[in-house]
């Protein structure tokens, strides 16, 4: 069990670092898509289209085997973070783009009408609202990255799943071990969801509903 926790820690690291990398890349990309000129928009669209279309595994392989071509020999751990991050950035840029676009033009116009410039309008009016809209889908992305981190297995990273399989190769109890792994993942996804729900509630603007399908 304690051994599994070591693997869990690696998984957590992969998830968080991947998400953060994704965030860092996604923000400028989403900007480029909304506020950029023709070229920027095109480039960003291509970026996100490409990285949403290829499987994570392929991406991981490309990074792991591709970087050596330009002389960099990445550790599997690093390659995974890069892969998770790039993939996540494609999805996250869509989340942010959606959130920003869903805020009506009227808000920006109102901001201009009281004399704000583009940057102020964004910072004080658009951004806070877009943040609220982003939380729900971002939570989803969180769990996606968490679960996708298991693919680091393919590159030999000793995260939770691989850790589990090592234990199995010694104790020959695949069912129990894997079920335990599953339980740990489940625990993580549930807690992540709960935390984000709390966060959402804290940041909630009264009467401001997140666009949801319900009647």
């Amino acid at each position: 069990m304690p051994i599994l926790l070591k693997g869990t820690w690696v998984t957590v690291q992969l998830t968080i670092l991947g998400l953060v990398l994704g965030l860092v890349i996604a923000v400028p990309v989403s900007f480029g898509q909304i506020y950029g000129g023709r070229v920027a928009r095109l480039l960003c669209s291509i970026y996100e289209r490409v990285f949403r279309s290829i499987p994570l595994l392929v991406l991981l392989m490309l990074i792991f085997y591709g970087l050596p071509e330009i002389g960099v020999r990445p550790a599997p751990f690093l390659a995974c973070i890069l892969g998770l991050g790039i993939r996540s950035s494609a999805y996250q840029s869509q989340i942010f783009r959606g959130a920003i676009l869903s805020i009506g033009k009227g808000q920006t116009l109102a901001a201009f009408s009281i004399g704000m410039n583009k940057i102020q309008a964004f910072r004080y009016i658009i951004f806070p609202q877009a943040l609220r809209y982003s939380i729900a889908p971002w939570t989803n992305e969180f769990t996606v990255v968490l679960k996708d981190s298991s693919m680091a297995y393919a590159l030999g990273v000793v995260e939770l799943l691989r850790q589990g399989s090592y234990i199995i190769s010694r104790t020959y109890e695949p069912m129990t071990i894997f079920l335990t792994c599953a339980a740990i993942y489940l625990l993580m996804t549930i807690s992540a969801n709960k935390i984000m729900q709390l966060l959402e509630r804290r940041l909630q603007i009264p009467g401001f509903e997140i666009k949801e399908v319900s009647h």
Partner: peptide, 12 residues
């Protein structure tokens, strides 16, 4: 099923 990775499910 939604809370656990697909790979884990395949392994099981």
């Amino acid at each position: 099923i939604r809370g656990t990775p697909m790979l884990v499910q395949l392994f099981i």
